[in-house]
Design a protein around this nucleic acid. Structure first.
Lengths: 167, 167
DNA sequence: TTAAACTTTCAATAATTATTGAAAGTTTAT
DNA sequence: ATAAACTTTCAATAATTATTGAAAGTTTAA
């Protein structure tokens, strides 16, 4: 496999995997491109490489910056803006995990909490609703705590966690 | 909050959370409905309750069965089919984790493996591609191993894992 | 074996989500 | 102050994904 084939394969696979880490295709592809680039890239270069429009590139870069995955860098003597992504995979994974927890898990935990504390009117269906949402609330909260705990170990968190789990 | 409001809130929240566990809205809503039901439900009841078509219900029930989350149950003296979902949240989480690993993570690990083993032609960009995809390959594989390890503890896996991590 | 009761399939359509491109906005150099 | 270089915004459009509903298929009871 040649460089170009490998590069395209990587970008498209990573792009379609977007759903797994909760971002859209273009966002994931831009990040993938920056991830294997040897230097900061301009909007121009990104749009040309991925064959996407200027508007699309601009919007998705902005979202990547909102996630804290991509940053603007100044290149000496250049007017336009250049972009780089976090290059350390573990740090990348940390950021994604924390963001998803904040954006998606925490709001759900809140709703489950609300629903699971409605007044028990004594009917079987209310009892079941309370019981099941309570269980789900506990599970979701535990998982969220787990993720945040894992991820706050900073240095080498994945390896450390794996070791602990294997014991 | 009354039963009906709580029920609807639960179903719609769980539905929109579908993306987090990688299934579509109708699928998640059907599962949610079954999850808080005190008895097995027929297709008829599901379509009426969620206001979705027969075809949609049929297809999504099938998918839920493919995932191993929902099962057909026979109800004595009834001709039509009835459905139930796994009621234990921990078992539910296990099934979802294992399925996502199989369906999404493993194929990506394979591509990363392929890409990261291309021939090093000595150029900087090839070196960077190899280095970064190798790191991603390792990370993804480690996480996949972690998930499968966690999840195979069967009984009370979440609590057990949490304890280990806190030590 | 037939017909009623039920489920599945799938082409058509609707709903949602992503993308474009050009106009408006901003920054910088002179 | 102005114009060139660049970025952002957003209404229009395209692409994707979900949903419908009716026809075809299956099962069961008599």
């Amino acid at each position: 496999m040649e460089y170009l084939e490998a590069k395209n394969k990587f970008i498209s696979t990573w792009g379609s995997l977007g759903s797994l880490w909760g971002i859209n295709k273009a966002m994931a592809q831009i990040q993938a491109l920056l991830f294997i680039s040897t230097k900061p890239l301009s909007m121009e270069e990104i749009m040309e490489d991925l064959k996407i429009s200027r508007g699309n590139t601009s919007m998705n870069l902005r979202q990547l910056m909102d996630w804290g995955i991509v940053t603007k860098t100044l290149v000496a003597g250049e007017r336009k803006e250049f972009f780089t992504t976090e290059k350390d995979v573990q740090e990348l994974a940390r950021i994604v995990a924390v963001e998803r927890s904040r954006r998606e898990i925490k709001p759900v935990v809140k709703v489950l909490e609300e629903v699971s504390t409605i007044k028990d009117d004594g009917t079987a269906k209310t009892k079941e609703l309370i019981k099941q949402t309570k269980a789900l609330h506990e599970l979701t909260e535990t998982m969220d705590i787990m993720i945040n705990k894992l991820v706050n170990q900073k240095q080498n968190w994945i390896t450390k966690s794996l070791l602990k789990l294997f014991k």
